[in-house]
Design a protein around this nucleic acid. Structure first.
Length: 425
DNA sequence: TCTGGGGTCCTAGGACCC
DNA sequence: TCTGGGGTCCTAGGACCC
């Protein structure tokens, strides 16, 4: 029998992590906020039932949350990242191939047993993850990725499914496809769903059966692949192992507006430092660097500007990248503009070991090695003693525009001093 | 007053060439 | 003054994802 594709994900991942860490929150409405405590990015099912919308700005609903006694947390990426790694490594022994798709979900390939039924496998996996990590997961099974996503959605929504739904075992999948609104299909965004609705295509079954020529004219080969996947023809491959990134970006909104060029320089410098660390961890160098800044899109007179420069020699040396980036700052800064966000993009990434040396001015090998050793030492110190142990002076000390995280939970799984205490009697 | 961050893929169209 | 056809490469921006 053919293999099955599974989409396995954690329910309300960030909120569930907070509950796993602090069991007293179980059964209570919990929301997690984005950076700067900006918007709601995760809700426990209790919070969802109260009608708290996803993506809602916190300042607009703070009163409503307080009235309902909702527990509010700032996002704690150290915690979620670590829980994610534990989740993924727990899945591995259960499947033949695993593609980690995002922080809280993975596609997997597994052989179907002779009798075809995977419910026992799924039930065991769910109880193992619940027991070891305290996380609830849902599992969708189907012959293609798009259908596995769709099955996963049914597994979560339908009370009868107990977190597992196998579309591959349904004699007639059509009613399930018909109950899936076109907007809910993975790969259908705002534009495409509006176009579909205008043509009377309201659900997944209708999209699957529509004239493919028409779809191709609108959505190109992406649309055709989507349609084939809905027909159960797998054309999106499972991608194992992290594929090399093509670009890396670090950007943040400020906790308050910036109007001063020196502060914008500090912000850009801090993001470059972070981006360079990422690059070294990925064992890559960058050949082009872009810096950008913008005012708030919610205020009149929106302004957004980017500037980019090629590096003479691809690099992941923080000092080299800082020099290039800071030279670009005057090109994006404008006096009297109220900057709300800035960022840096590292592009034209290439593997570290394939360094193309400059023909005319090669850096002496000895000097090159010294620089690399320096970067390594800085990274090690910051990993061991915590981020910011070794800093770059251009970033400023304790700048006041830095992220706001007023309701942060502890780094209970990644920092010794934050370990939870258990009292035994 | 306060509205997230980090990615990928694809296409259209301009620049340039013979 | 007339000014085709076909190709490549690059970039910006759209669309989508979690």
């Amino acid at each position: 029998m053919a293999d099955a594709l599974a989409l396995i994900d954690a329910n309300n991942f960030y909120a569930s992590c907070e509950q796993a860490l602090e069991p007293a929150l179980l059964g209570r409405p919990v929301v997690v906020l984005s950076n700067n405590d900006g918007c709601v990015v995760s809700r426990s099912s209790e919070a969802r039932q109260l009608g708290i919308g996803m993506g809602k700005p916190y300042f607009q609903i703070a009163g409503q949350l307080a009235r309902h006694g909702v527990v509010v947390r700032s996002s704690n990426y150290a915690l979620y990242g670590d829980m994610s790694q534990r989740l993924m490594s727990s899945l591995e022994p259960f499947v033949a191939e695993l593609e980690v798709y995002s922080i809280d979900e993975a596609f997997a390939r597994l052989p179907r047993p002779r009798h075809g039924d995977l419910h026992r496998w799924a039930a065991e996996l769910r109880s193992r993850i619940r027991h070891n990590l305290g996380l609830p997961i849902a599992i969708g099974l189907a012959p293609s990725k798009v259908l596995a996503k769709l099955a996963n959605r049914i597994a979560k929504g339908d009370q009868c499914c107990a977190g597992v739904f196998d579309l591959g075992r349904e004699a007639d999948p059509d009613p399930w496809l018909e109950s899936t609104p076109v907007e809910e299909i993975w790969g259908v965004g705002r534009q495409l769903s509006r176009w579909c609705r205008l043509r009377g295509i309201a659900n997944a079954r209708q999209l699957r059966d529509m004239a493919s020529g028409e779809l191709r004219a609108k959505a190109g080969v992406v649309g055709l692949r989507l349609q084939l996947e809905l027909q159960g023809v797998s054309c999106l491959p499972l991608e194992e192992g992290p594929t090399a990134k093509r670009e890396t970006c670090v950007s943040r909104s400020f906790s308050r507006v910036i109007t001063d060029e020196s502060e914008l320089r500090q912000a850009v410098a801090s993001y470059v430092v972070r981006a360079a660390e990422k690059l070294r961890r990925q064992r890559q160098r960058s050949g082009r660097l872009t810096v950008f800044a913008r005012t708030s899109p919610f205020s009149p007179g929106f302004y957004s500007q980017a500037a980019s420069a090629a590096l003479p020699l691809a690099s992941n040396d923080t000092a080299v990248l800082l020099q290039t980036a800071l030279r670009l700052v005057p090109a994006i800064f404008r006096p009297h503009k109220r900057f709300a966000k800035a960022g840096v993009l590292l592009q034209e990434l290439q593997p570290e070991q394939q360094l193309q040396h400059h023909l005319l001015t090669p850096l002496p090998a000895e000097q090159q090695q010294k620089r690399e050793a320096l970067m390594q030492s800085i990274d090690q110190l910051n990993r061991r003693y915590g981020a910011g142990t070794v800093q770059w002076a251009v970033c400023g000390l304790q700048p006041s525009w830095m992220m706001r995280r007023e309701q942060l939970s502890r780094a209970a799984t990644t920092r010794l001093s934050d370990l939870p205490t258990v009292w035994a009697r």
